[in-house]
Design a protein around this nucleic acid. Sequence first.
DNA 1: ACAAATTTGGTACTTTAGTATGAGCCTGTA
DNA 2: TACAGGCTCATACTAAAGTACCAAATTTGT
Lengths: 138, 138
Amino acid sequence: MKKTILVFSALIIALLILFRLSRYSYLSNDISVELTIGSIAVIFFFVGIYINKRTLHKEKLPHTQIDHKKIEQLGISKREYEVLVHISKGLSNKEIADTLFVSESTIKTHVSNLLVKLDAQRRTQAIKKAKELRILAI
Amino acid sequence: MKKTILVFSALIIALLILFRLSRYSYLSNDISVELTIGSIAVIFFFVGIYINKRTLHKEKLPHTQIDHKKIEQLGISKREYEVLVHISKGLSNKEIADTLFVSESTIKTHVSNLLVKLDAQRRTQAIKKAKELRILAI
DNA sequence: ACAAATTTGGTACTTTAGTATGAGCCTGTA
DNA sequence: TACAGGCTCATACTAAAGTACCAAATTTGT
């Protein structure tokens, strides 16, 4: 936030300076008009890049949108998805069963269904596929 | 690549057009000089943002620097790391053995050593930890 | 060349994972 | 209310995964 304000302030100041500069070049009427315009273009080009980099950095890292539509498309139920999340955390079936207060048999059933729905042969493969499909945060 | 070239071509063309435009405003000597400069600034500002977005998108996703120092620190050997990469791809021990042209026993040994070095109880946990430690691309 | 580390592989087990099948319980809805 | 879908759980397997221990062949650094 602070940086954005600072950058915009700098942007406005630069704009004002360039206005002054343009007046001089206008009075001296030679190729410096083209030069001025060129430098303005280059400066604002890089200003754009800089600002974009600032904003993207703060958004891209925590921003890993989960494709809820995809989850629905694959027919993965709420509970199955919960299990999938726990699998990706590296938990065993027994551990997942304990955290969700159900039996290990239940988890096995969920896992088995998940593997079919994700077209995976192993839980590790399920993790990889789920991340590729953007249904799990990478 | 193609898009970058296309964008840069458009940029050059825009630059040329603005040069023509600036000549007119210079002849009619009024506030249109400021207007022209303003529009140039705005246009190139957004061009900068656009190009940055293009390049960042293609670099940021596969760009996840691997901490080679960490791998060394953990005492993970070259071959063990290879196995780790294959594990994260969702391959079974047998499949890894086949792709690396060694026996399944060998892979089991490597995996066992990896689990100790990564302080993991399961291969899924090893994947998670390895990604957290930045020794595997997320 | 020698020691140290790495890689390879085997046997013998134990533990997880995963499959197949069947069944009871709830809940939203036609 | 009947029925589908989702959640639960069990049994009985089969298949992987992982452990422990040992040992030989290779590679690497000094």
